[in-house]
Design a protein around this nucleic acid. Structure first.
Lengths: 135, 135
DNA sequence: TCTTGACCCTCCAGTGACTGGAAGCCCCAC
DNA sequence: GTGGGGCTTCCAGTCACTGGAGGGTCAAGA
């Protein structure tokens, strides 16, 4: 299987697949012409990686998850620990973004958005918050 | 005002302040010894930038917001447009993350997390979703 | 006066996970 | 044999910093 077909079947761009080889996530064979020759198993690994990345796992997490996937003696606790940690990070990120959203949506709501210069958004950005300069 | 004091008063690391000068966001004067000499106005700009970055605005957005802040003839509509666009991106990101969180938390919940290899997380990552390979 | 330590300077490289582009083979159909 | 698409490698760029090396400057204390 050439890289193009793998790309189509996994949904990953060829560039990304080459990159994953570069960093040692997959090790395709080579045809005599130098083209990468993917076996089914490599393709499945790439599909696995694509799905793990979709769930936001880092490349290093992916590397570890892939190793566990290939290890029939794994403990599901190890997998779960990685996922749980990642989940916690996602939840933290969501909270950060929600805070930004809440602040921003208030500011946007209160801004007239006309041709006058008066603007609560700039006013807020230009003003020290009460929470600053403490501690 | 030396960079250290500005760092303390704005909460931005010195490295970041130097970087902001590099990319033209601030233009501090220089003492004869080569040290950066910040005026109050520069410090306020940096504080503004710090708050805009806290709200997740990109550096380019910050550059534009700063220009509007300094422009007494601005139209608040221009500020609002930037903020609204950014808000939309944040909301999209939140939705993405919530989807990840929902999938992940289900998988984590269903995983025994013991010393056996059986694991719904890996199973899910290793399996084509029904939504894949369509269209 | 000398030393120490905190501060400041510049420049370069690295981060994560790709992505774009240049330059150049390879293969197949016409 | 020619054209076009696919494949190769390698280099540079993205974003917003961050770390570190190597070295100058300043003020307080011995």
């Amino acid at each position: 299987m050439n890289i193009g077909e793998v790309a189509e079947r996994t949904g990953l761009p060829p560039k990304t697949i080459r990159y994953y080889e570069d960093i040692g996530l997959v090790k395709p064979l080579r045809d005599t012409n130098g083209y990468r020759a993917f076996r089914e198993s490599e393709m499945h690994k790439l599909a696995f990686l694509g799905r793990a990345r979709t769930l936001g796992f880092s490349i290093e997490d992916c590397r570890n998850l892939l190793a566990l996937w290939e290890d029939s003696n794994r403990a599901s606790a190890d997998v779960r620990a990685i996922a749980k940690e990642h989940l916690a990070q996602i939840e933290a990120k969501i909270r950060d973004l929600q805070e930004m959203r809440d602040t921003l949506s208030t500011l946007v709501r209160d801004c007239a958005g006309d041709d006058r210069p008066d603007c609560p958004i700039l006013k807020s950005l230009g003003t020290e918050y009460a929470s600053e300069r403490r501690s």
